[in-house]
């Protein structure tokens, strides 16, 4: 390529990451707009439908995700201090927490499917319009969120392998910070999804 690549500009890639985060926020923003409009139009139905969701699963997942954010942030601190080993442990912890989150999600969705609650199911179609919308939004938003968790996981595996082969060091760690930023964004989105779907009973 060009010799520009010899110049690493961490600040630039960080701005780039932030800008990307903004687009992600607005991507979910579109769904949040749809959610708030439909909730405004069907307050009672949303209320009723939310009863179907399991608060404890949601709560556990919130705490898991918050913790994973903290561990990844600490992994960044560790790498800045030059403690690669600690950083590896903390990143792995984040990965494990993320997988646990996904497993929880899998069982949660699975339970819904068992109760015949999935988009387009006969049972769902007999419910009121507000409830259909609630579950449509529930699956779309948590589904998109889970997709982001998976992308975050891939990023963290890359981080881990770079820590392993020592291409990430105390002064070359922008990838870790950017993955962190991305992961915290996923966290923030969940922070809003949690009350909107689980806490409005």
């Amino acid at each position: 390529m060009t010799d520009i690549h010899l110049h690493r500009d961490d600040e630039a890639s960080k701005i780039g990451m932030w800008l990307f985060i903004f687009t992600e926020l607005l991507l979910f923003g579109g769904l949040f707009i749809a959610y708030s409009i439909y909730r405004f139009k069907n307050p009672v139905a949303f209320h009723m439908a939310a009863e179907e969701l399991d608060l404890s699963v949601g709560l556990i997942n919130t705490i898991i995700l918050l913790t994973s954010s903290a561990t990844l942030a600490m992994a960044y601190t560790a790498v800045q201090l030059g403690k690669i080993g600690t950083s590896k442990i903390l990143t792995s912890a984040t990965i494990i927490l993320a997988i646990v989150f996904l497993i929880n999600k899998y069982f949660e969705w699975g339970a819904k499917f068992e109760h015949n609650l999935y988009p387009g199911s006969d049972y769902l179609m007999e419910l009121s319009q507000g409830e259909i919308l609630f579950f449509g939004l529930y699956f779309a938003m948590t589904g998109l969120h889970a997709l982001h968790i998976i992308i975050g996981l891939i990023l963290m595996f890359v981080v881990l392998s770079r820590l392993q082969n020592k291409t990430m060091t105390s002064d070359n760690n922008q990838l870790l910070e950017n993955s962190g930023l991305y992961w915290h964004l996923v966290d923030i989105i969940w922070i809003f999804l949690f009350p909107l779907f689980y806490l409005i009973t």
């Binding site: 915290h184 966290d187 949690f194």
Partner: peptide
């Protein structure tokens, strides 16, 4: 619930996201 969520995301943005 949303006010709590807003406060939480403020902390995430300010500390976790530096």
């Amino acid at each position: 619930a949303l006010i709590f969520a807003a406060i939480k995301s403020y902390f995430v943005l300010y500390y976790f996201m530096h």
